[in-house]
Design a binder for these strands. Structure first.
Lengths: 147, 147
DNA sequence: CCAAAGATGTAGCCTCAGCTACACTTGTCA
DNA sequence: TGACAAGTGTAGCTGAGGCTACATCTTTGG
């Protein structure tokens, strides 16, 4: 901080900046769904079952919160669940989960590739992944391939 | 998706995973403050004035929303503002803004360095920057230096 | 076979970050 | 100098995503 540099500040055009912030806000709202979808897919793939309480514990929230989120997943056509019978993903949900998992792995791999320690990479990826665009993802992929 | 790979899925330990998600949630709540602080600092540095309406237009929100956020900044001791007289940063606010700006630049530079196109880098950095830990930032810095 | 434990679901509350609508200041210029 | 436009502030709404408390269902072991 406070280097000798004069700190040239270049403000983006107003509409450009507004658009960027807007997109970021949108991304935020889908982040939660993505996390749930990915986690449900993982639980189904490993344990064979995705129960609200398990999901809640994994995410570190109360089971009531998890159930509300699951309702939202259902509303958005990403999951199905019958009372007391666990949660499953629809085709759309599976697709989302697969995409998210791939992206997550790519982000972690890139972080490791540029020298980020494993635990920090895993931690940060959890937040970062939701804000990585396709263009950036493609660039990560190329970068990782070309080494 | 659906590659030939068997997709080995390795679930992290439950408490580890819960902690990661928790940290990500916390980061979310500070993200907004960081954006406002950085923008206010930029406006003060370039135009000399940071008015609620300007801030709102730059962020793409209504002026009422901006004013509410500014109240929160004041509540957190990051900004000062007298009615009808513009917004200023406290010492703490300045510090935050400086840290955020440095981090932002580092994130953009790293994205560019791994081949992300400029516009995507600028866009994605807006969302990514809030989730980059100090450890990761340090790694970025080293990576950029060592080229 | 049924009682208790644990899982699930519901209700109601909170805060945050959006919004619109309306009221009030400020500053400018005819 | 005073009317009006632009900026500022306030009130009250929404939805999301947290929570606790309570009610209900399932499962399991004695």
């Amino acid at each position: 901080m406070t280097t000798g540099e004069p700190e040239r500040i270049e403000l983006p055009e107003e509409p450009t900046q507004a658009r960027r912030f807007g997109k970021t806000r949108t991304a935020q709202s889908t982040a939660l769904l993505e996390d749930y979808a990915e986690l449900i897919a993982d639980l189904l793939a490993t344990g064979g079952e995705a129960r609200p309480t398990d999901i809640a514990r994994r995410l570190g929230v109360s089971h009531a919160t998890a159930i509300k989120a699951i309702s939202r997943l259902k509303r958005e056509g990403l999951a199905t669940a019958r009372p007391y019978r666990g949660v499953f993903l629809t085709e759309a949900g599976e697709h989302l989960a697969a995409r998210v998992r791939l992206r997550h792995r790519l982000v972690v791999d890139l972080l490791l590739a540029v020298g980020v320690p494993r635990e920090a990479a895993e931690q940060d990826a959890e937040g970062l992944e939701h804000h990585v665009s396709d263009a950036t993802l493609a660039a990560f992929s190329r970068f990782l391939a070309g080494r």
